[in-house]
Deep mutational scan, measured.
Amino acid sequence: TVKFKYKGEEKQVDISKIKKVWRVGKMISFTYDEGGGKTGRGAVSEKDAPKELLQ
Rank of each mutant, 00 (worst) to 15 (best):
Q12G: 04
K5T: 14
I28W: 03
R23Y: 10
I28F: 04
A43W: 15
K51N: 10
S29E: 15
V24R: 09
G25V: 02
G8K: 04
S29M: 15
K19N: 08
V21S: 07
E46L: 15
G35C: 04
K11R: 15
I15D: 01
G40K: 09
T39A: 07
F4A: 03
G8T: 04
K3H: 10
E52M: 09
A43F: 15
T31W: 10
Y6L: 06
Y32M: 02
Y32K: 00
E52R: 07
L53C: 03
K20W: 08
V13Y: 02
I15F: 08
E9N: 07
K26L: 11
V21L: 06
T31H: 04
V24A: 10
D14H: 14
G35S: 06
E46R: 10
D33E: 09
E10D: 12
L53T: 01
K3F: 10
I15V: 10
G8Q: 04
G37M: 06
K20Y: 12
G8R: 03
K7M: 14
K7V: 03
E10C: 11
E46K: 08
E46S: 11
T31L: 14
I28C: 02
G42A: 07
K7C: 14
T31S: 07
Q55G: 09
Y32V: 02
D14V: 07
R41Q: 09
W22K: 05
G40C: 07
G8I: 02
Q55K: 14
G35L: 06
K38M: 08
G37I: 03
R41V: 13
I18F: 02
K17E: 07
V24I: 12
V24Q: 13
E10Q: 10
K26T: 15
G42N: 02
G42H: 02
A49I: 04
A49L: 04
I18E: 00
I28P: 00
R41I: 14
Y6W: 14
K11C: 06
T31P: 00
S29I: 15
E52D: 08
I18G: 00
D33F: 05
V44M: 10
E9L: 10
K47T: 11
V2T: 02
V21M: 07
Y32A: 00
W22Q: 06
T1E: 06
Q12D: 07
E10P: 09
K3S: 11
K19F: 11
I28Y: 05
Q55L: 14
K3W: 08
E46Y: 14
K47Y: 11
R23T: 05
K5S: 09
G35A: 05
G42Q: 02
L53P: 00
W22A: 04
